[in-house]
Design a protein around this nucleic acid. Structure first.
Length: 634
RNA sequence: GCCAAUGUGGCUCAGCGGUAGAGCAGCUGAUUCGUAAUCAGCAGGUCAGGGGUUCAAUUCCCCUCAUUGGCUCCA
């Protein structure tokens, strides 16, 4: 048979040759490193035989597939160790994930991190035993009988739910056997470095109506240095956590008195306001107008919009003059009323109406997370009212705007298209049409996207932009939602060329998503070292001795007059100490004023990025900095 | 909301059944010193809140609240 390799080369082998032997024929070093393989795109373990002409790829730890195989085996090793230590544990699922693996386990005993040492010790025994992993297949009935005799009820349910044509495979390592599609590495000895990281609760099949299982997270590597590097990187990433930086840089924070309701302090407000100024400039360029609608509106409005029915559990309500009111969780119903205040002509469409709206949503206490998930946040909302044939262009316009903003900060992002959720209103045809429009716009914008089934808003499908935080968790920021429902509910109209009333279509969209969340992402992205245009303090003037205070004071005044956010540090401290503190505050520029500078009428500049820049005239420095601010350099 | 862990001065953390300690920050004083921490002194805590066990609780137990990591949910 002929085997084809990724580089296009081919080679002949006997039928039934094992993948590992094929690898050996290529190179011994590859054979030592290879963890998994694929045959015609299907993942296989390296002991699997090949029986016909095929394309074969080999994966090492450098590849996602190889990493997955190794970590998936690590997950089995953990399950085996737990079964040895706690035979009454029932196993649910245990996959490899991006940076490691987990296993969901049902057991009376409550695991805590104190138990990790014991489990890890048992795991290293299994690794030392170097057990081969053997794959075998069973028919559905055999498989059911097999797991039933061990009382593995979760496996039983998994098997019952497999599609009819599924191949039901098991992997056996020593006394331990697990239902699993694979692939795995050939022996437990290949998994050299394992570390358990955390325990968490997780509902069986992700449904909160089901029993909560215990999920043990861990990670695995081939080499100790790789594991150490990973753990070090995690520690480093924690230093960039916006909650920590928010406190250290005195930007924002939370109080026990208001869980999920963030406070912004003066320096945090500077960032927020700069961001909003930027937002307003960009939106003005794109022909948006801005409005503001009230935070509290009556129940009748929310019933009309559908929120009272579909979103009630997340809404805060209040009673005014014995009437029910709700604190807005979204801006759209208010926006609808604003649209309806007068007649609109088709000539005016599309109408793009922006609103920085403060919304309140009752999020579950356990879901709160710094500024990333809060109960009160500012949405940089906008509603676009348009005719049907303007839909695609408008969506593309929003995609371009969003992309432009994210690119300015150098963000990595990924895009998802979320389809109809269970709790939703409107007809199938409308949903279908809306989803198609979004897809078409995405394709025209040449954006890669994934489908996120059932995750749309109750009134329409959406395109979501997800940004990464410091440890790689992603958060939805921008979103574009197409809505045929609200215009209907609110009887929105425009007057067409025929003089008749027509129904507009609308888009809800945000670019930052939540200003708070966006600031959190920004903080982590820049590790607190905000670009000069956003930095709460752009320049700090430091004196060498208090002989210099008068001149330094003049410099501070001059900078402030030029609109540069300036602080002074005239304390009687050594210059090294003052620099250290300013460095900790991530201030972009320091001006150091001593006798020499005064004599020469210059300023000594120290940049956060490049260190000591030497001396220059104050005006030169100002011009340079103003240029950096205006062009929003990062 | 659910599972687990945590909660000691502004911050980072020690401590422990006999009612609290350090470093940094703060304040006071000395020092006037050129690019990542000058020295000395002072002050600051009802040990998250409530209840219980005990002669005695910050320490042990229970409840509540908050935080952290997940699940669920979502910008």
């Amino acid at each position: 048979m002929i085997i084809t390799f990724p580089n296009g080369s081919t080679k002949e082998f006997d039928r039934g040759t094992k993948l590992i032997d094929i690898a050996k024929s290529l190179s011994n070093s590859l054979a030592k490193k290879v963890l998994a393989a694929s045959v015609n795109g299907q993942s296989k373990e390296i002991n699997a035989p090949v029986n016909e002409d095929a394309e074969v790829k080999f994966f090492t730890f450098e590849d996602k597939e190889g990493k997955h195989a190794l970590r998936h085996t690590a997950s089995h090793i953990m399950a085996q160790a737990i079964k040895r230590l706690y035979p009454d544990a029932k196993l649910a699922i245990g996959p490899a994930i991006d940076n490691g693996f987990y296993y969901d386990i049902d057991i009376e005993k409550r695991f805590s991190e104190e138990d990790f040492e014991k489990i890890e010790a048992e795991m290293s025994k299994i690794v030392k035993e170097n057990l081969p992993l053997e794959r075998f297949e069973l028919s559905r009935d055999e498989a059911l009988a097999f797991v039933e005799k061990d009382g593995e009820i979760y496996k039983q349910e998994l098997i019952e739910n497999l599609p009819d044509d599924a191949i039901i495979s098991f992997y056996k390592q020593g006394e331990f056997t697990d239902l699993c599609a694979g692939p795995h590495v050939p022996t437990t000895g290949r998994v050299k470095q394992i570390k358990l990281l955390s325990v968490a609760g997780a509902y069986w099949r992700g449904d909160e109506k089901n029993k909560m299982l215990q999920r043990l997270y861990g990670t695995a590597f081939e080499k100790k240095t790789e594991l150490d590097d990973y753990l070090f990187m995690l520690e480093e990433a924690k230093k960039r956590d916006h909650r920590k930086l928010g406190r250290e840089l005195d930007l924002f924070g939370m109080m026990d008195e208001g869980p999920g309701f963030p406070f912004f302090f003066p320096k945090g407000m500077v960032i927020k306001n700069e961001l909003l100024n930027f937002w307003r400039e960009e939106h003005e360029k794109h022909d948006y107008e801005e409005i503001q609608t009230p935070i509290i509106l009556n129940k009748a409005l929310w019933e009309r919009s559908g929120h009272w029915g579909y979103y009630r559990e997340n809404m805060y309500t209040t009673i005014i003059d014995e009437q029910d009111y709700a604190i807005k969780p979204m801006n759209c119903p208010g926006g609808m009323l604003a649209y309806k205040r007068k007649l609109h002509s088709y000539r005016d469409l599309p109408i793009r109406t922006g609103e920085i709206g403060l919304v309140h949503r009752h999020e579950l206490s356990g879901a709160l997370h710094g500024l990333m998930r809060v109960r009160c946040f500012s949405q940089d909302d906008a509603h676009i009212y348009m005719t049907r044939d303007q839909i695609i262009d408008e969506i593309i316009g929003v995609i371009e705007l969003t992309r432009h903003v994210y690119d300015l900060f150098g963000f990595k992002f990924h895009v998802e298209l979320s389809t109809r959720p269970e709790k939703s209103m409107g007809s199938d045809e409308e949903w279908e049409m809306a989803i198609q429009s979004l897809e078409e716009a995405l394709k025209k914008s040449e954006l890669e996207y994934a489908i996120n089934p059932g995750d749309g808003a109750f009134y329409g499908p959406k395109i979501d932009f997800h940004l990464e935080d410091s440890i790689g968790r992603t958060w939805q920021c921008g979103t574009i939602q197409l809505d045929f429902q609200m215009p209907e509910k609110f009887d929105l109209t425009y007057i067409g060329p025929d003089g008749e009333k027509h129904r507009p279509v609308m888009i809800h969209r945000v670019v930052f998503g939540s200003v708070e969340r966006f600031i959190a992402i920004l903080t982590e992205h820049f590790a607190g070292a905000f670009p000069a245009w956003l930095a709460p303090v752009q320049v700090r003037v430091l004196t060498i001795t208090d002989r210099c205070n008068d001149r330094a004071g003049e410099i501070v005044s001059q900078l402030k007059k030029d609109g540069i956010r300036t602080e002074k540090d005239f304390r009687n401290e050594k210059i090294g100490f003052k620099i250290r503190e300013a460095r900790d505050q991530r201030i972009p520029y320091l001006l150091i004023i001593g006798d020499k500078e005064i004599e020469q009428n210059l300023v000594a500049v120290r940049s956060r990025k490049e260190g000591d820049l030497g001396t220059m005239p104050l005006t030169d420095f100002c011009d340079k900095l103003k240029e950096e601010i205006v062009t929003k350099q990062i």
